[in-house]
Design a protein around this nucleic acid. Structure first.
Lengths: 328, 328
DNA sequence: TCCTAGCACTCTAATTTCTCGATTGCTAAC
DNA sequence: GTTAGCAATCGAGAAATTAGAGTGCTAGGA
């Protein structure tokens, strides 16, 4: 257990290091505290023994360790209000009622990336509250159909299908079969249901079932699939901890890797912080993320930055966005 | 006018510098030529006076100037055949008949970016051979319509429109008006026509004309708009000429700037090379680009890399892709 | 007239040395 | 428990040194 004074020293070192990115010496601290630098040094030594602080070399100031950051975010961090400017900028997005949720997410995270210099990730899926209401197929010409899929939550998605050499009769028959069997199925179970329950039925009653099945399968996987986007990737370049080309390449590759990004999904309903080795992405970054859920969509929003991240601010911003989205 | 020997020296310096990225000295050249290094040095001096070569400092080897590269690509470059492996990889894309053109472009440029370590840009538009054939609107519920636009070349695009509080009657009336007036219009003129010829008519006959006009305007601008994509952006990081964070940030910002990218459009039917200051993007890069045109689509494909670029190879690859696309 | 061997000169890049200042840990006194 | 004082440590940057690659020029030879 830390003493009051140790805590306030740790807190100062963390906030100061986040601000200035330079190891923090005892002098800086003792100016703000009513005690001498020697006292501070003794305390620092103890904090180092506890694994909360580190030195970059024998005679340098102290830098928070991952454990130090962890202690900070768990016990010391204070959440302030957002600034008026921040709120104002974000409200321009939330007040724009014409936007789809995915656009709202993207734009608000653009703003966050912009004002914080960090990178954001959005992982968006249709909420599995969505149940299929109907599918509708409009023939355009001999080769092309447009499939329109509607859910009970009012999501409408459409996609052109290429199916050559299939008669309109067959198409209509297939659509009717699918509609009869699949209405009411949660959107994320449609693909499976299509494969195991509907495919056999279509195969029985429809001649060109292969072609039609494949086309519909594509449509449904497309509609229910996860949507990943990364915003403000170039901000990685702004942090001194990522100032060598190797490292940049490394992180950029990870940010481009859809498979890796799909793993950031957050189930927990809180705002969670993963510092350095706590996250699966890269030991040199911190990931702060939270999920969101509306009746139409659900997913995860995440902010990625150096471990020396402005924790308070990012948590506040994410919290604000989450509430805005879910409140709507 | 350069002598035969000067040309071969210039050619060697360019190819050698492209390969090794180090200033080329006289010794390297004279080993391959039947003459002494002193002779080579004299020739080099002349080539430098002509502005074809440069030195990085007084006693360094020579590096091609932009003018030197220009002379090389205009007069000295030899186009070899693609390697079997290159052809093989690309053919996996071109043989996949299920792909849309835009996918073919993206995938083949991914391959090119991959094997060359350069970055590719695709600028894709519907060909203005496309004339509007019909629009079709499917009502989904009170708020949502799906608009389907078909061109005489067989392109089908669809988009959901949100129009609340408009009666189905009015929608149908509008669609009929648009269809009557606009069929046969080249796709890239539709927006203008909609605004100046059709808007007044709708305004006259349709009650909620504002809402409907705006919705259709969005649909058409979306459909006829340019589609820009950048492939292999991280490859920028692989070249030693871009190994400082400033420069990387600079180039990345440019590659993210849709407005800037739309300017790369190439009208000319050749494969054109823009070295350093010859291109509008960045004085430290070379852009090699060509247009392509099918009855459905047209646009530009471009390869971006350092000035010290493997010109022969990139030209060959672009040429191959252009022919494949246009041949189909 | 063209070519080339030879040589002094130049400049970079890498290595070493030196210095300054920030910061520490320790000790002894308060 | 706190603090003043002090020697010790180390990095960052400046200055000096060195090695080597490459040049330009000159003078003699084909």
């Amino acid at each position: 257990m830390l003493t009051k004074r140790q805590e306030s020293i740790l807190k100062m070192i963390v906030t100061e290091y986040i601000k200035l990115a330079k190891p923090v010496g005892s002098k800086l601290i003792c100016d703000k505290l009513n005690c001498s630098s020697a006292t501070v040094r003794n305390e620092m030594m103890q904090l180092e023994e506890l694994g909360l602080l580190e030195k970059t070399h024998t005679s340098s100031g102290r830098v928070p360790s991952e454990k130090g950051y962890r202690y900070y975010v768990d016990n010391l961090m204070e959440l302030k209000e957002l600034s008026g400017e921040e709120v104002y900028k974000l409200q321009t997005v939330f007040n724009n009622s014409g936007l789809e949720l995915s656009d709202v997410l993207n734009r608000s995270l653009e703003i966050i990336s912009d004002i914080t210099s960090y990178t954001s990730i959005v992982l968006d899926t249709k909420s599995h509250d969505n149940k299929l209401k109907e599918i509708n197929v409009v023939p355009v010409n001999n080769e092309v159909l447009v499939a329109i899929v509607v859910t009970d939550q009012g999501i409408v998605e459409n996609k052109t299908m290429k199916v050559s050499g299939v008669s309109l009769e067959e198409v209509k028959k297939t659509v009717k079969l699918i509609n009869d069997l699949i209405v009411g199925t949660p959107i994320d179970e449609v693909s499976a249901k299509l494969e195991f329950e509907i495919k056999p039925v279509i195969a029985k009653y429809v001649k060109q079932h292969e072609i039609l099945y494949n086309a519909f399968y594509d449509v449904f996987t497309d509609i229910s699939s996860k949507n990943v986007s990364v915003v403000g990737k170039n901000n990685i370049l702004k942090h001194q901890e990522f100032n060598d080309v190797e490292k940049i390449n490394d992180i950029f590759s990870k940010l481009d890797d859809k498979n890796m990004l799909e793993n950031i999904e957050e189930k927990d309903n809180n705002i969670n912080i993963y510092i350095g080795h706590e996250n699966k992405m890269d030991p040199d970054v911190t990931v702060i993320k939270t999920n969101y859920k509306t009746h139409k969509d659900e997913g995860t929003i995440a902010i990625v930055g150096p471990k020396r991240m402005d924790y308070d601010r990012v948590v506040n911003l994410l919290d604000y966005i989450k509430k805005q989205i879910e409140g709507d």
